[in-house]
Simulated scan of single mutants.
Amino acid sequence: MDKPPAFIKPKPCEQPRPALPVFIAAAILVQAPSKSRGCFGESSMATKPGFLTEWPWRRLGNFKYVVIAPWVAHSFYLLATRDLKDVPLTYLVIFPSLLLRMLHNQIWMSISRLQTAKSPHKIVDRGIDFEQVDRERSWDDQVLFNGILVYVGYYFIPRAAHLPLWRIDGVIMSILLHAGPVEFLYYWFHRALHHHFLYSRYHSHHHASIVTEPITCLVGRR
């Protein structure tokens, strides 16, 4: 039997490109009312705020998830109006994947705080103060940002609509890329963030947390 092709070229009717959600999300960000403080009342993330120190949707406050709402609504619309075989699975699983990632982060955060409160084995012998809790409540911004990247990437890469759920060569390639170029670039990018110019504008917020926990790495790293 011949080996099936790696990608099946979809028919035009099977490629629902979410153009409208892209424009709606952009309009939400542009027209959001400006606020001087974040969604939970916390002040700016850095000691010397610079260009793009804050997330673009920070002005939306508690309504920041409306940024991905057009894509989510569009995926549910496709699921309700088309046969399941005609709806790209990749597009449908983006939103559930974001929810699972948030749940995963929340579980580890709860375990970490339980250990901080009750375990005798601590790196820093002190509790987490309320200031740190408030400062790190925006940890989900990273998940939201990744979701936007995936949705936009799906829009610009038509073949992404029919990616397989599992490919062993893809797993091997991901491991090699992560162990090689990604780690190399991440190391030097992190070192650059400790330069006084970038540190004061983007990275100081991250190091303001003395009692580190799993979500500390998600705050103040741009």
Rank of each mutant, 00 (worst) to 15 (best):
S43V: 09
D83G: 15
T47K: 01
R135C: 01
L78Q: 12
F23I: 15
F7Y: 13
A208E: 14
I175C: 11
L78M: 14
W139H: 05
R191T: 06
K122A: 08
L29T: 02
S110A: 15
E131P: 00
W108Y: 14
I68E: 07
L99N: 02
P164M: 05
G153S: 13
A179C: 12
V87M: 06
R135I: 01
D86A: 13
L29W: 04
G38C: 08
P88T: 04
Y155E: 07
I148T: 12
L20A: 14
Y186W: 15
G41P: 11
Y187I: 05
L218R: 08
M102G: 13
S44H: 14
D86T: 13
N105Q: 12
R221Q: 14
D141Y: 15
I107M: 09
F7V: 14
R113N: 04
R222C: 10
Q106M: 13
S112Y: 04
F145D: 14
L185H: 09
P16R: 08
F40M: 13
S204N: 09
A26D: 10
S112E: 04
Y91P: 01
E213H: 12
K3H: 07
W55F: 15
A161D: 08
L92N: 09
S200M: 02
W71K: 01
S200W: 06
Q15G: 00
H162Q: 10
L98W: 03
S97R: 05
H178P: 00
H203W: 08
D140E: 10
F76E: 08
I111M: 04
Y65I: 03
F51V: 05
R222K: 12
A192S: 09
Q132P: 00
D129M: 02
Y77N: 04
A117T: 11
A46T: 02
L52I: 07
P214L: 04
V171K: 03
L218W: 11
R126A: 11
D86E: 15
D169C: 03
R101L: 12
W55Y: 15
S43P: 00
K64H: 11
W57I: 00
A73G: 07
I148R: 06
G61E: 09
V66E: 03
F189N: 12
V67E: 10
H190R: 08
F95M: 04
Q115W: 11
A46G: 03
S36Q: 10
P120M: 08
H74N: 12
V124H: 13
V66D: 00
Y154Q: 07
S110T: 15
A19N: 06
V72G: 05
R159V: 06
A27H: 05
G180C: 11
Q31I: 11
V171W: 12
E131T: 15
C13Y: 04
Y154W: 09
V143E: 10
P181N: 02
P120G: 13
L185I: 11
A161Q: 02
A73D: 04
I8Y: 07
M173L: 14
A192R: 04
I111F: 08
Y77I: 05
K122E: 09
P96T: 08
V124G: 00
L149R: 03
G170I: 03
Y151A: 06
Q115I: 03
P158T: 07
I123M: 07
H74C: 09
V182D: 10
L218M: 15
K11F: 04
A19Y: 13
L103P: 00
